[in-house]
Simulated scan of single mutants.
Amino acid sequence: MSSPAFNLRQYGRASSVDRHAFAQWVVPVRGELAFELEGRGARLDLLQGAFVAPMAGHAQTASDDDRFLIVDCPAEMFDDDTLECLQRQPVLALPARVRSMAQRLGTVVGEQVEATFVQAELPGLLQAFSLAGSATRLQAVCARIEANPGQAWPVERIAGEVGVSGSRLHALFRQAFGLSPQAWLSGSRLRWARGRLADSDVPIAAIAQHAGYSEQSALTRALRREWGMTPADYRRRFRHPQ
């Protein structure tokens, strides 16, 4: 699989052993599941879920009126240390924010959860079960910033979400992206603003505010520095046809 997917499923009372090349989380929304993973048994309910590593054999038997959030992820989304840790301890006590997420998505009609929900909810799931300072957690916080660049993102907040000190955060960003955290944030904000300029008629001042710029002139300076044009020039050149 090339991208993550969220699905809502009912399992029923019988299942054969399954294996797949992608990683998977099983998060109960309603009912419980007798779950067997590589010969180890567990019972999953609203407080306990499971992680299925790529190619791990698993089978399950559900109670009546069950529903489960199944999150499929490409194995490439995990750094080796996080994947190894989850393989060793696949039965997971579910944090409150993960349980809340499952209950929100559990109200979706049908089986497939829309891509917009996946984009919004996946970073929190990755962060909850990845190692502090890992590449997986770094990618999770970057996805959060991409989705909400206009929020306040001081170094202290980013470091807290990655689970490291401020100085360690700078080292991780330099190693991964060749940029400081604030330089990466600036790039994310400008990218978001360019997207809104190209695909909407929202006033430039409002775009600047929602992207996290103190005022429209700050967006103008950033865009002129990186692209050699003003926001109005960018919109005229790159505006998508409606």
Rank of each mutant, 00 (worst) to 15 (best):
V17D: 14
C85R: 11
F173N: 02
T82F: 06
G212A: 05
A53S: 12
R137C: 03
R88V: 01
M77E: 10
R104N: 06
L37E: 04
N148Q: 12
G163S: 13
S15M: 09
R194Y: 08
E32T: 02
R196F: 00
A93E: 10
Q87T: 12
A93I: 02
A143P: 10
Q87K: 13
A21R: 13
V26R: 00
S2E: 15
C85D: 04
P54I: 02
R239W: 02
L46S: 13
R157T: 05
P4D: 09
C73M: 15
R97C: 03
A206T: 11
C142R: 11
R144W: 08
A198P: 07
L122Y: 08
G57S: 14
L197W: 05
L86G: 03
S200C: 01
L126N: 02
F117V: 05
L219S: 06
A183M: 02
A147D: 09
A50I: 06
L172T: 07
Y234G: 11
M1K: 09
L122V: 07
P74Y: 09
V164T: 00
W184T: 03
T107P: 02
L190W: 08
F35C: 01
L37H: 08
S214T: 12
R225V: 00
E36L: 12
G163Y: 08
A128F: 13
S15A: 13
Q60I: 00
L105H: 07
A222D: 02
F22Q: 09
A120N: 07
M55Y: 07
L219W: 10
E84R: 15
T136G: 15
H58W: 06
V98F: 02
S3V: 02
D80C: 12
Q182V: 10
F177H: 04
A50L: 03
Y234L: 04
L44W: 00
M101S: 10
I207T: 01
D199Q: 08
Q103R: 13
G166K: 12
M55N: 14
Q89S: 05
D45K: 15
L185I: 13
G41H: 13
H210S: 04
A232L: 15
H58R: 07
D65K: 01
A115L: 15
E114A: 15
R236P: 00
L105C: 11
G178N: 14
I70W: 01
A53H: 11
D45Q: 14
R225P: 01
H20D: 15
L86F: 06
L190Q: 08
R225I: 00
A147G: 14
G212H: 09
S180W: 05
D233R: 14
R104T: 07
L122F: 12
Q24R: 15
N148I: 03
S165T: 15
S2G: 08
R224C: 01
G228Y: 12
F51D: 09
T61Q: 10
S188W: 01
I158H: 13
A53W: 07
A93S: 11
F68M: 15
A218F: 01
A56V: 01
L172A: 01
S167A: 14
Q10Y: 06
